[in-house]
């Protein structure tokens, strides 16, 4: 069953890629890809440490969605450095929180 779902998911994603290359409706393409992606996911994806690695993609997405109110009168590179510094800090804090839970989980498993 798992193999069949993986195959179906792969076909869906391939179809989405080919549809996008042929400039089909973007929403349908994304929907197909997400559905295919979900079908291909396996048990490993639920691990906390695995989720941690997705922060590298999620945080920049959040940064684009919620631009920081950095004063416009500051020099451009200082604004760039400030934005990067703050979002890096957010990334590190979230990493630390997840790492704390994953370690706790790891050591709790060891005790059993």
């Amino acid at each position: 069953m798992k193999k069949q779902l993986e195959l179906l998911g792969s076909y869906l994603m391939l179809l989405a890629i080919i549809s996008a290359a042929l400039r089909y409706n973007q929403l349908i393409v994304i929907a197909m890809f997400v559905a295919g992606f979900a079908l291909v996911l396996d048990g490993n994806s639920k691990k906390i440490a695995y989720l941690q690695m997705h922060l590298f993609l999620v945080i920049p997405y959040l940064a684009v969605l919620f631009p920081l109110p950095i004063p416009r009168e500051w020099p451009g590179l200082i604004r760039l450095a400030a934005a990067f510094g703050i979002w890096t800090l957010v990334l590190c804090i979230l990493f630390w929180i997840i790492s704390f839970f994953s370690n706790k989980h790891l050591y709790s498993n060891r005790g059993k």
Partner: peptide
């Protein structure tokens, strides 16, 4: 990602 999208962060460098 942050560098390529820095115009969306309000910088545009």
């Amino acid at each position: 990602i942050l560098l390529a999208m820095n115009n969306s962060l309000g910088i545009g460098f």
